[in-house]
Design a protein around this nucleic acid. Structure first.
Length: 526
RNA sequence: GGCGGGGUAGCUCAGUGGUUAGAGCAAUCGCUUCAUAAGCGAUGGGUCGCCGGUUCAAACCCGGCCCUCGCUACCA
């Protein structure tokens, strides 16, 4: 990804939109948290951020599920959307726009887009032939037909050959352009492994035209040029990325934000974003997005999460036992965002206790206690003083650059590792070596020295809090606002962490104290 | 079957030819007691998937094999 300085000052990002068949679990949330970290980071860096999320509701399965519960599909969708948004709220996901594809505004914009693609000559009528399951009322892939001996895995009945009229999108005509696009723009989709798959697929098999119509008029978006058909959900779902910012409706807002700077998606839908989506954009005469980031999946104690596995964990179960920030920290720290990760209760406690409670929170506590008890919360004489390095090789600018690069590449685990190892650990070593709690009991000179040690460690905490802001916003703010740093919390950028500079006033501890102590930032879990 | 990743300490991983293979966590021991029974230090622990080859020298290069994960178009 290009460095911040080379980017225009707007940042439009999206996550994949979710099926509201069931409530979000820790896997669904993984994507949102990772996207949120990026959005918060970009806001810190001065971007005008627009962060879009939503639910994908125009599938017959959603309508079926509603029927099962005796609800109107729209009522069901709206209620699920409410529940999704509650979970995202509980995770402090800072989205700006939430799209429901069953809402009229999205549908209207969709129809305009599809009509445009049709008018541009990229859609034609044909027939789709394949293996059909009358039970599922849907076509199955050749692969499934072959692997399952011609039987439907759900109904155990033979699949039948069937042909029906449909509308095709001329995807094949974009194959060469797509291949060149993917090869010429290595940063379009990350990580590289996903890009290789996307390229490999076209090289190996080419691209066939895409059937974009489905039967089932009662739920979905009718094709604008043939109301007998509804739109294939993917052709509609991808369009949230533009209908959510005013395509065909508010051209000013649309042109301000498009093309998207980043689509966060799961690795399972990489192909839709590497093959269909850019081609669809070209077909409608708009630019394709700039970047797609395809993250990995989260397992539960080594096994894949699924309803059938009975191992679904919802975010709030974990948050209730710890905190939002602990939750965000664990998944960003322990699960490498581009790859797969694992959730286990034991590991969760280990990581949160070792790093958040012991290395970070405890450092804040010991600093504040010594500062408050021995100096009455005011480090007199530190006004104008430039902090010393806590270790000989400590280099704030270098650490910030490292963390910045990691965040921009969505290597969140590396970013957090660097913060703990290169900011918090040295500060703990330093405070231990200098032992200010001993110095303050000695001569006036020693007491003065102890004061400076605390002062220096507080600046390490300041750096850590700024770097941690996108990850654990609440806790980072508590750290920062425990002291009288002059720059407001809301105005900080990563550059503020890159140097040790003086401040005009004496350093003060302004955190709320109870018996000279501060409330633990991250209470230990184990 | 085809293509592409990966297999390194109990766990998560770093390490693309050169001194006794590294980090964090976990484990054990010591120091410390300002602090959230936290911190700091030290120690133990690895025939670097297997076999063969190239080389003065291989975790790293080459060949074969085993295992594992992903992709292989109409469920998304």
């Amino acid at each position: 990804m290009p460095p911040v300085t080379d980017q225009p000052k707007k940042w439009f990002q999206t996550t994949a939109i979710d099926y509201p068949n069931s409530r979000p679990h820790i896997g669904t949330a993984f994507e949102k948290v990772g996207a949120d970290v990026q959005a918060r980071y970009r806001r810190m860096e001065g971007y005008d951020v627009l962060f879009l999320m939503g639910n994908d509701e125009n599938t017959l399965k959603v309508a079926d599920k509603a029927k099962e519960l005796g609800l109107e599909p729209q009522v069901y969708c709206d209620d699920m959307a409410r529940q999704f948004r509650e979970v995202w709220g509980a995770l402090d996901i800072s989205y700006d726009v939430f799209i429901q594809t069953s809402h009229e505004r999205h549908k209207e914009c969709c129809r305009k887009f599809i009509q445009k693609v049709y008018d541009n000559g990229h859609i034609y009528k044909g027939a789709y032939e394949g293996w059909f399951c009358p039970g599922c009322e849907e076509f199955k892939s050749e692969k499934l037909h072959k692997e399952n001996a011609g039987l439907c895995p759900n109904h155990n009945r033979p699949l039948v050959r069937r042909s029906e009229p449909c509308w095709y999108f001329k995807l094949s005509s974009f194959a060469d352009r797509l291949l060149a696009f993917l090869k010429d723009n290595p940063e379009y989709v990350q990580p590289d492994s996903r890009r290789n798959e996307a390229i490999g697929f076209i090289e190996a098999e080419g691209l066939e035209d895409l059937n974009i119509s489905r039967h089932g008029k009662e739920w979905g978006i009718p094709l604008p040029f043939d109301e007998d058909f509804t739109t294939y959900v993917w052709f509609d779902a991808l369009l949230t990325y533009i209908t959510g910012i005013g395509y065909g409706d508010d051209e000013t807002q649309f042109h301000k934000n498009w093309p998207a700077d980043m689509h966060f998606i799961g690795k399972d839908i990489t192909r839709f974003h590497c093959h269909y989506w850019p081609a669809m954009c070209w077909a409608a005469g708009i630019e394709p997005p700039k970047h797609v980031f395809s993250h990995g999946f989260v397992n539960n104690d080594g096994t894949k999460i699924g309803k059938s596995m009975g191992n679904v964990v919802e975010p709030r179960e974990i948050i209730a036992k710890s905190s939002v920030d602990a939750y965000r920290y664990y998944f960003m720290r322990e699960c490498a965002y581009p790859g797969d990760g694992d959730y286990s209760g034991k590991r969760y406690e280990e990581v949160c206790d070792s790093e958040l409670s012991n290395k970070l929170g405890n450092l804040l506590s010991r600093c504040i206690t010594v500062g408050a008890k021995s100096f009455d919360a005011v480090l007199t004489g530190t006004a104008g003083r430039v902090p010393d390095k806590v270790t000989v090789d400590f280099d704030a600018a270098k650490v910030v650059a490292e963390v910045r690069t990691a965040v921009e590449n969505c290597d969140y685990n590396l970013a957090l590792q660097a913060i703990i190892l290169k900011v918090c650990a040295p500060a703990n070593q330093y405070i231990d070596t200098e032992a200010p709690w001993k110095l303050v009991k000695g001569t006036a000179e020693e007491k003065e020295r102890g004061k400076i040690v605390i002062f220096n460690v507080i600046h390490s905490l300041r750096i850590a809090s700024i770097l941690l802001k996108p990850f654990i916003p609440r806790s980072a703010e508590i750290i920062y606002t425990s002291f009288n740093f002059p720059k407001p919390w809301s105005e900080l950028t990563y550059a503020d962490a890159a140097e040790l500079h003086a401040q005009p006033d004496d350093m003060r501890v302004i955190a709320t104290l109870i018996d000279g102590k501060v409330k633990p930032l991250f209470p230990r879990l184990a």
